[in-house]
Design a protein around this nucleic acid. Structure first.
Lengths: 359, 359
DNA sequence: CTGAAAGCGCTTACAG
DNA sequence: CTGAAAGCGCTTACAG
């Protein structure tokens, strides 16, 4: 009768049957009372709640999952080699946003890193077959991505980060999107306005939609300004390949006067390469990044970059997925676009050819 | 009878009862056969396995969890503000190592980011009360850390990353450790051998044991060389505070000739600060980091740092926790120590005072 | 408004 | 070696 169990400790677990006995009702009534379902008199409900509190009862997750036909678990599977996953600041921030949103709900997140795309697909199949999760977050969308259709086949609720390219957006898959091309356009326009004519773009693997959208923003902005969009390098997003790409660009007979990178890590590696070659940034070469990692602010010079609210993205995606799980309805959410953060790594090219004089 | 269910799809789930019917045995026998338990004739086992494969049967995780009294889930709770969790390369790499180790087992990982230590404790209590997980990884050990004792109270198997300070290592808690002080000693000894006399240390919050062990390694190595260990700054591990600490150190009447940082992010921010003040690195100031993030290799100059195999740590911790969950026995594991990675950010101080001439 | 019963899909003693 | 039954701790129709 006393406060035993109040510490939720290793003592014999208290079940709904104990609460029922204590409150003098049936186990079924306890369940109804505890879950705030109609059909229980206020006085009875009170009695049950008091008994549950006194006994220190806590719902057994395993039993609830089985009888409620729900895992109370959301899944995030990231296909990335173990060696490089640490370099991407996206996932910890995204997960932080997701789990913050999940706090008040009874859901938690299962997070898995797998080596490649095939293993990722296999994981979803296993999740669905074993009823491991109630829904999944789909990240790193690709061209002709098979995952939205797979989700429909598996009957697995899902949200994608960003919009899939084909309108195969099968049934239950909603898209939670941040327009990162907006930030990219701002960056390129700023460089054009500063008088740059040869603006390169160093980005990630071509199959990613987020890579494509940034590249297209770069292209379109250059084309609109009557400039050639011919200095494009695809990498694996690593510092190493970012450095290599920079070296090759700067070794051209007519090198670019500005390089836009699709992440901050490559931009900072590129910055080091340029400086090692004796170029002053931004005087001899302007450089921009993407992500706005904290270090970007403390680079020398501080890096002009593009900021996305990644944790906010995680929170919004979690809410959308929770809703999809609850009513099997897909809905799209558009978050505020990524914005340029102007810092000192951009300046007019030398010899300066002033243009519009905006900057 | 055909391959329906082979896609594990949204079709009506096939249960053990279906397999039993198909194989002409009881559901209990199916369970025994499927779990490779003795007491089933080979021929019967064959028949069951064939039936299961034909029907596309997959174990229902929810049902197994309830009847097996096991969650098949391990927990990682990280107390860190959402805003800074992205800056730490540790967690993605650690999680990758953990989930790689979990692949062949039936366990998965639930990963949660909470804002502070109290919320972390609360999460463990909830995990235990609701039977959410079978065990947890305890990271960022502190001075007088209450968590090992809490695990004993909750009856929750756990492993700590690194050894707790008090021998309150309650029962079921094993420690999986990497000696990072070894790398720190190498770094300081290298600087001493190069002729440095004023070697500072910029590190994280004093309550973390991993901060303390690096600081003590720095102190002990200096003391052994007859040098003063008086240039110490504690920060929150952020680039911003690393930059601020550097600025203050370099503004001293007699500034250090070398600064050792407890992570690469602060080291790179410090590098930028030094260069902005007109100092050449390493000529005027030697700098070292910790972590060996990929960018460290591509800094200008490349950063001397200390490398830990974080993914390997995750894998070893996962194996240890799996074992602790299986037999409730704590065991300690010692992994290879962290090693210095020598790069170009270290040189003798100017004016050079050659000493042993090792470097 | 309330109670007794069945059910979620497995596992595990316990008899034969 | 094998089968029938009970049990894990909840939820949810279904009668009263």
């Amino acid at each position: 009768m006393a406060g035993r169990g109040e510490h939720g400790g290793a003592a014999r677990r208290v079940t709904i049957a104990d609460v029922a006995r204590e409150a003098g009702v049936s186990p079924g009534a306890v369940s109804f009372a505890l879950n705030n379902r109609p059909g229980v008199a206020d006085a009875t409900r009170r009695r049950v709640l008091d008994a549950a509190a006194e006994l220190g009862w806590r719902p057994n997750h395993r039993a609830r999952a089985l009888s409620h036909q729900s895992s109370f678990t959301l899944g995030l599977v990231v296909a990335r080699p173990t060696t490089t996953v640490g370099a991407d600041p996206f996932f910890p921030a995204f997960v932080a946003g997701v789990t913050a949103a999940l706090q008040p709900s009874e859901q938690s997140l299962t997070f898995t890193v797998v080596p490649d795309h095939d293993a990722e697909i296999e994981t979803y199949r296993r999740f669905a077959a074993e009823k491991r999760v109630d829904g999944v977050f789909l990240t790193d969308l690709r061209v002709h991505d098979p995952r939205p259709a797979l989700m429909a086949e598996l009957g697995l609720p899902a949200v994608t980060l960003g919009r899939p390219d084909r309108t195969s957006s099968a049934g239950r898959v909603g898209a939670v999107s941040v327009d990162d091309s907006a930030g990219m356009r701002e960056v390129v326009r700023t460089l054009v306005d500063a008088g740059h004519h040869r603006i390169a773009h160093v980005t990630g693997p071509a199959e990613f939609l987020h890579v494509r959208s940034r590249r297209e923003a770069w292209e379109a902005t250059l084309t609109a300004a009557g400039l050639a969009a011919d200095l494009l390098v695809h990498t694996d997003f690593s510092a190493g390949e970012g450095a290599g790409a920079t070296d090759r660009l700067l070794s051209r007979r007519v090198p670019p006067t500005a390089i836009t990178y699709a992440n901050d890590v490559m931009a900072m590696a590129g910055l080091a390469v340029a400086q090692r070659r004796g170029l002053a940034v931004p005087t001899d070469l302007s450089i921009t990044g993407f992500d706005d990692v904290e270090l970007a602010h403390y680079a020398n010079p501080p890096l002009t970059t593009v900021r996305t609210d990644v944790a906010g993205w995680g929170t919004a995606a979690a809410h959308a997925l929770l809703a999809a799980v609850a009513d099997a309805t897909a809905r799209d959410v558009d978050l505020p676009p990524a914005r340029m953060i102007a810092r000192a790594s951009v300046a007019p090219p030398t010899p300066a050819r002033p243009r519009k004089g905006t900057s």
